Simulated scan of single mutants.
Amino acid sequence: MPYGNSSNDPAPAQSRRHIFGNDAEQYDTARPGYPRQLLDDVLEFSALAAGEPALEVGAGTGKATLAFARSGVPVTCVEPDVRMARVLRRRCAELPDGSVGIEVADFEAWHPTRQYGLLYCAQAWHWVDPDVRWARAQAALSPGGAIALFWNHWVLQCGELADRLTAAHTRLGIEIPQDTLLDPRPRPARRGPESRQWREMTATGFVDPDHRLYTSVHERSTSALIGLLTSYSGYRALPPEPRERVFDRMARIVDEHGGRAHVKVVTSLFLGRTRAATA
């Protein structure tokens, strides 16, 4: 049986949200940040008052946190993994006191002591329990408060290289993990009102929905490309031996390709608001 996305997957999806903490430093090094224009758009949409804090769900190692905090927005971070939070604290140490508060907790069980004008979540909303996440967001936001959910989606620009890396998985009997660099499905798969995030958001009482896309291209060396693949939960969930075999084979292929690869990053942002208070 191939290794990968089967019913016998060694780390089912619901258990994977803590898998990134197994090597939080590697995750922090490998993952890219988010476009400056996205940050500006979120802040414009939320229209936070001066000094008004934002709430970040699943802050990880701070890929989005530092960008918001450096823009003058105080951030309360809720991060379920103590190992990721440790890296987050180190990265935020350079910021002025009071810029970032960190709570190590599952968002589903965390109880805010105030309401926020902005709740944002970078690359992590799918890890939050779908049965409660929207209600929990509503409870954490003030009337008229904004929600911003965003993800990076990656694709190799060179089709020949993608085909060779895909073939390496086939020869080794390893399924390509979903939502990764080599996943052949389009990402984002649906846009605007056709997307699941939009439908769920509006069905749970959020208004003024919007969906925006941002595109950038990054050059990665062989080691940096393998590092990105290593940071995916689907690869982390593979047993060590087949994982190392496929990484070794892919590294050789990229080296043969010239040791460089261009990765297109499409960042998908969903925006919405809670209903404003009525007079």
Rank of each mutant, 00 (worst) to 15 (best):
R185E: 10
S221A: 15
A237M: 13
A224D: 12
L238I: 09
R243C: 13
P193I: 12
P242V: 05
E200W: 09
R249P: 01
R185P: 03
P177H: 06
Q157L: 11
E200I: 07
A203M: 15
R171L: 04
G159I: 05
S221N: 13
R171S: 05
L161G: 00
E241I: 14
E175N: 03
R236L: 14
L172A: 11
T180D: 02
V217E: 15
D208F: 08
P240K: 07
V207C: 01
G192M: 11
E219Q: 14
P184C: 15
T215D: 03
R164A: 10
R191Q: 14
A203C: 13
A203N: 15
D248M: 14
G192V: 09
E194I: 13
D179C: 07
D208V: 06
V155I: 09
Q197Y: 13
G192Q: 08
G173P: 10
L181H: 00
Q178K: 15
R243P: 05
L225I: 02
E160I: 04
V207Q: 03
R212Y: 05
L213Q: 14
D179I: 05
T180M: 00
R164N: 11
G205H: 05
V246E: 03
R185Y: 09
L213I: 07
S216V: 01
P209Y: 03
T166Y: 08
S231L: 04
R212G: 01
Y232A: 00
L225Y: 00
S221H: 06
P193A: 15
V155R: 12
P186K: 15
L228P: 08
Y214K: 07
L238W: 04
R245G: 04
G192Y: 08
R196Y: 04
D179H: 10
D183T: 01
H169I: 04
E160P: 02
I174P: 04
T215F: 08
T215K: 11
V207K: 07
F206T: 01
P184H: 05
S216L: 12
L213K: 00
T170R: 04
S216Y: 04
S231Q: 10
L228A: 11
A203H: 12
S231A: 12
V155P: 00
E160Q: 09
W198H: 06
I226E: 02
G159C: 14
D248I: 07
A224Y: 06
T166W: 01
L228Q: 07
Y232E: 05
R171Y: 07
L229P: 06
F206H: 01
V155Y: 03
E194T: 14
L172W: 10
P184R: 11
R249Y: 03
P239D: 07
R220I: 01
G205K: 06
I226K: 00
T170H: 09
A189L: 08
E194M: 06
E219K: 11
L228G: 05
A167C: 11
E200K: 12
S233D: 03
G192D: 10
Q178W: 06
P242Q: 12
P193T: 09
W154G: 00
G227V: 03
T202L: 13
G227Y: 01
